[in-house]
Nucleic acid binder design. Structure first.
Lengths: 123, 123
DNA sequence: CGGTATCCGAATAGATACTG
DNA sequence: CAGTATCTATTCGGATACCG
């Protein structure tokens, strides 16, 4: 069952990574992995995230079946977002990548500095 | 050592995911995980990838210390790209996410269809 | 062969104003 | 509170032309 890295098998992977790699999805998923959150609660917790982008991010996550949106018919209305089982199952692999990123971000940082310094010297 | 999902700890994760989640990086990394490749070899192997984008993708990967670029002073010149140890170590977590994506892409697909169908009914 | 430089249209994302 | 609608600034990506 050796998985060859064919072009085709990468397409869904790329789609997932594109979703999860966009500017805000991961942050939202990480927060939702703790407990359900309300809309403005998420907005307040993620600095720099505009209302528009939060809406779009949540819609996409909902569309992909990773997040549920529950409206409570209170006045004023409150809407709660939570991970689906599918969304929760994503936290494992994403967590692994996250740990890799945390562990290696110093290495990446210094690689960038070396690269930029070398590029500068060439000008 | 319980890792809290603070905002700050997510930033490097997001950067990695943004790099790896862009349109072509994963495809390039997957190919390079097999063996070193030359520039035009990569270009031919990835359908729809323009020369410009391949160059940019490779530069970014090189800058992050994930890929090496080796120029052989032949005529005509040949340039070989390969993964660094850091790049190879990324293949583990990315592979895990990839397997998740492959396993769950049917679920995501059907979630999308359900969502789109529901949205359509509302119009 | 393996790029760089430039132009231009398309897609994104932020700010702002308005609404049930 | 939780959005939608609209406008605009920026970014991104493809096409093309040129170079060592």
């Amino acid at each position: 069952m050796k998985p060859r890295h064919t072009h085709e098998s990468c397409t869904p992977v790329r789609e997932i990574l594109a979703r999860v790699g966009d500017k805000w999805s991961i942050l939202v998923i990480m927060l939702l992995s703790e407990r359900p959150w309300r809309f403005n609660e998420l907005k307040r917790s993620i600095e720099g995230l505009s209302q528009r982008m939060l809406t779009l991010t949540l819609r996409n996550l909902e569309r992909d079946g990773l997040v549920t949106r529950t409206v409570y018919p209170t006045v004023p209305p409150s809407v709660e977002y939570a991970l689906t089982p599918l969304g929760e199952s994503l936290c494992g692999p994403v967590g692994a990548l996250g740990r890799w990123a945390l562990e290696n971000s110093p290495r990446i940082d210094s690689a960038r500095h070396r690269f930029d310094a070398a590029a500068k010297r060439k000008r």
